[in-house]
Design a protein around this nucleic acid. Structure first.
Length: 557
DNA sequence: CTGCCCACTACACACTTGGA
DNA sequence: TCCAAGTGTGTAGTGGGCAG
């Protein structure tokens, strides 16, 4: 066996797996780093390209093969190859021949990641050059050469299917750099997508001829394409996991439940899982719906992994507070749209506890207002008996309000209000006093009355303010507000519903009753109210005005 | 009116799942 | 392998609907 033959693996038919170990010893790592291996891929391609430009060649001749440098071998893969010598390895097998830089096969993942620019690879450039030359030939000449190639295949015991199968199989490509080069050229070529497309649906070149379309490869290719799509979409679903996973520490907070939109989710899903989203979007024949796409993917994700439940938790809370029955939840849970019913029950309790904790913290920082009123609940009995009669039960419901940006009331506010009220009871307001107060108020409001009249005139369509010469004059501007209310995010007030108590608020005719109601509310929300006790607001809660208007002021002072 | 069946709710507990 | 989160199932209590 000559060295060249050994390098190219040409020696004999038995020189397949069984000779691997010989090659390993014949071409150690040092040989791979020899001068022969230092030939650059660019040099090789330019050589081929220049040759093809002179005389187009459809197949590499023997000289070409001899000129081809080989890939380097990998020690780890060598061992693996030795150990599995009877089966074709799916991973890179050792090359029995030396290699050159840039002759490595392109891994699909590398191609996807863009680490290798296949479009500009030497193999692609070579194929393009060949194509350019071929396109200058007549159809007859191309046909003649194709027949010559098929004849060459036939003479060597191949046909096109076998040739491609052996080429793509990997067994021989890992052994020989020439075959590997050819495979890379095929895999990275611009022509491959079109080859695949034509296999699925062979084109009709003569539309007028009513001949039957050539038999395509759809039957064999379709299952492969389906498998490939499934593999891609499974990977994308794995990548989608973090997007739909929720944290139980924050999952029932408002910002978590409402902090996304379907359009936003759809856009983010499109980035992480483009194939899956495109697949879902393109299924409806009429028009796609991001909502349905996101919901369907969420259902599948939830089925795959319970922790991917962002949409399910939001839907669960929504349907719960819309009064969906337990049976309804069971159905929707089976459809993968909501969480289980037991989760919902626990989530409601967690929400209540979290809200109360938040309120407990806030009342120590900001002034707060407590309102309460009676609530009447009918316990309806459709089949009444003596021991089981319909009842109309009264209770008290309370709500706490906080406004973080508000100026705290002075500590004497409650006392001042009580004294003012007591004083007014002894000296009711007179008509003259009412008129005096109105006169003072009217003086302040006069510019606003004038502005109302002026605005009606200058904003009428006929006046056309935009064309008026003095439209920017100060007299035509709206006067600044007297006491503008704060607006914006910081000015938003917060509302907390407290637990209702079975103490009729109608018993408020006495101050003692008010205290009883408040005590009952306190008992129901002990953790919150114990904090209020610490804030020494008990005297405020005991305020007499509470039983009149159901309003209690609180302050951390 | 009674008895039976069913629905709903709350709860406990064993089990499953997935991540660390 | 452990642990947290979530699921599934069984049980008890309550009450509505319906037939007899």
């Amino acid at each position: 066996m000559s060295n060249v033959d050994a390098v190219l693996g040409h020696s004999s038919s038995s020189n397949t797996q069984s000779t691997s170990s010989e090659h390993i010893e014949s071409f150690p790592r040092a040989a791979a780093e020899s001068d022969l291996l230092s030939i650059g891929r660019d040099e090789r391609v330019s050589e081929v390209s220049s040759k093809s430009s002179i005389e187009p060649s459809l197949a590499l001749d023997d000289d070409d093969e001899h000129d081809l440098p080989e890939l380097d071998s990998d020690d780890d893969n060598l061992e693996e190859d030795i150990n599995t010598d009877s089966e074709p390895s799916q991973s890179r097998c050792p090359s029995p021949t030396p290699s050159i830089d840039g002759d490595e096969e392109l891994d699909p993942d590398e191609l996807k990641a863009g680490t290798t620019d296949s479009a500009e690879s030497p193999q692609v450039l070579r194929t393009r050059a060949l194509r350019q030359t071929l396109e200058q030939l007549s159809e007859d000449e191309i046909e003649r050469r194709m027949l010559a190639n098929l004849e060459a295949l036939k003479n060597t015991g191949f046909d096109l299917a076998l040739m491609l199968d052996f080429l793509c199989d990997g067994k021989y490509t890992t052994r020989n750099a020439t075959i590997r080069y050819a495979r890379t050229a095929l895999m990275c070529s611009d022509e491959l997508p079109n080859i695949f497309r034509c296999c699925l649906k062979p084109p009709r070149w003569s539309a007028s001829a009513k001949k039957k379309r050539a038999t395509g490869g759809r039957k064999g290719l379709a299952p492969v394409a389906v498998d490939w799509c499934l593999e891609v979409m499974h990977k994308e679903m794995d990548a989608l996991g973090p997007l739909l996973t929720t944290d139980t520490a924050t999952d029932v907070r408002a910002e978590s439940l409402t902090g996304f939109t379907f359009l936003e989710l759809h856009a983010r899903m499109s980035v992480v899982a483009p194939t899956l989203v495109q697949f879902m979007d393109s299924l409806p024949r009429r028009r796609s719906s991001p909502v349905i796409t996101v919901t369907t993917i969420s259902q599948l994700m939830y089925q795959n992994n319970w922790s991917n439940n962002r949409l399910q938790k939001t839907f669960s809370i929504y349907f719960k507070f819309k009064g969906l029955t337990a049976k309804g939840f069971d159905v929707l849970h089976a459809l993968g749209l909501v969480m289980s019913h037991s989760w919902i029950s626990k989530a409601i309790r967690r929400m209540s506890r979290m809200t109360l904790d938040e309120l407990r913290e806030l009342v120590q920082k900001y002034p707060w207002v407590l309102t309460y009123d009676n609530v009447v609940i009918l316990f309806k009995i459709f089949s009444q008996r003596l021991e089981n009669l319909q009842k109309l039960t009264s209770g008290t419901a309370a709500t706490a309000y906080l406004k973080p940006g508000a100026t705290p009331l002075p500590a004497s506010a409650t006392q001042d209000l009580k004294e003012q009220r007591a004083a007014n009871l002894d000296s009711p307001i007179t008509i003259r006093r009412v008129l005096d107060l109105a006169a003072v108020g009217n003086k302040k409001l006069r510019p606003y009355y004038a502005w109302l009249l002026l605005a009606a005139l200058i904003h009428s369509p006929d006046f056309d303010l935009s064309t008026y010469k003095f439209k920017d004059h100060t007299l035509l501007q709206k006067p600044p507000p007297l006491n503008p209310l704060p607006i914006g995010k910081d000015a938003k007030s917060m509302q907390f519903l407290l637990s209702s108590v079975n103490q009729p608020e109608a018993s408020r005719v006495k101050i003692d009753a008010t205290c009883t109601i408040t005590s009952a509310i306190i008992t129901c929300a002990s953790s919150f109210w114990s904090t209020l006790f610490k804030c020494k607001i008990w005297s405020v809660v005991d305020w007499a005005g509470a039983w009149v208007c159901g309003l209690t002021f609180g302050s951390h002072d």
